[in-house]
Simulated assay, not measured.
Amino acid sequence: MFPEITHDDVFRLETDRLWLRWPRAADADEIRRHVGDPDVALMTTSIPHPYEPHDADAFILSARQENAVGEGLHLVVTPKSRPNEPIGLVSLHGADRRGTATLGFWLGKPYWGQGYTTEAAKALIDLAFGITSLDRIHSSARPDNASSLRVHEKLGFSRIGRGKLPAPARGGEIEVEQFELKRGEAHTVFGARRPRFSST
């Protein structure tokens, strides 16, 4: 799905306030600290709670492997002033033959309400539509997750219905609002320009 320029862990994306980069082994403690909060984990389908010490290590390894072969792109979100301190994550993964991938994100609770998730996701979406052949992006949010619903609206997603998704970390299925964003409809942070990205 993603071209070779994203397959190396020196790749990063820049926004006004943030760096988005590959997760590293050194990020494990900060990731554990943020997603160990039930208010973060329980709004997702895949983050276990309680979050055990080995869970962050396993996630980082899996994300790096997927990034390295271009099957997805998982990027930790860091403030520009603290590039070694992950405060969240945005990802695109699971591309199918119809040119559709899935957006996922989480943000540490101390950073809620400041627009970081929208800023980071806009950059990743802009990149994806700029350098891949994706035609659309799917995403979902729990109906009671008001902040996630707002993020989808800000990004330009359209609601396509309500349904249930497998949620192995929640012990079964959960009900979600389902969203779709088609190429050309994204409310991107860079407008018509492609995002700045670096491989050095």
Rank of each mutant, 00 (worst) to 15 (best):
A146Y: 02
R97K: 13
V151D: 04
A123M: 03
N67M: 02
G113S: 02
G161T: 05
F179Q: 04
D144W: 05
I125P: 15
Q114W: 01
P83Q: 02
H54D: 13
L149M: 14
V176P: 02
D126L: 13
S158R: 15
L107C: 07
D57A: 11
A167Y: 10
R98A: 14
L61G: 12
R159E: 12
G172K: 05
L103V: 00
R98N: 14
T132P: 05
E177R: 09
G184I: 09
Y116D: 04
A169C: 04
A141G: 08
V189H: 15
G115L: 01
R97H: 10
G184E: 07
L181N: 13
V77I: 14
F59E: 04
V189I: 15
D96V: 10
R170N: 11
R98G: 15
G161A: 02
K164V: 00
L92R: 11
L92I: 03
H187R: 14
S158H: 15
R136F: 09
T102G: 00
P83D: 06
E185R: 15
Y111G: 03
P168K: 10
Q178S: 05
G156Q: 08
G70W: 06
L165C: 05
K182R: 14
L165K: 08
S133D: 15
A146Q: 08
E153A: 13
N67P: 10
E177C: 01
K80M: 04
G115K: 00
I87G: 09
L73Y: 01
R159K: 12
E177Y: 01
R159T: 15
D135I: 03
D55V: 03
S139F: 11
H54K: 07
I160W: 13
Q178D: 03
A95V: 07
K164F: 06
E119T: 08
T102A: 06
N145H: 14
F179N: 07
E85S: 12
H54G: 10
T117G: 13
L134F: 06
L124E: 06
G108T: 08
Q178P: 01
D55G: 03
T102P: 00
L127M: 14
T117A: 08
L165I: 11
K80N: 07
V176N: 00
S91K: 12
Q65D: 07
T117N: 04
E85W: 12
G172D: 06
P110Q: 00
D135A: 10
P79N: 06
G115Y: 00
P79L: 06
P143Y: 14
E66Y: 01
L92C: 04
R183K: 11
F105W: 11
S148M: 06
L75S: 10
H74A: 00
G184L: 02
R64K: 04
R150A: 13
R82E: 15
L107H: 03
R183T: 06
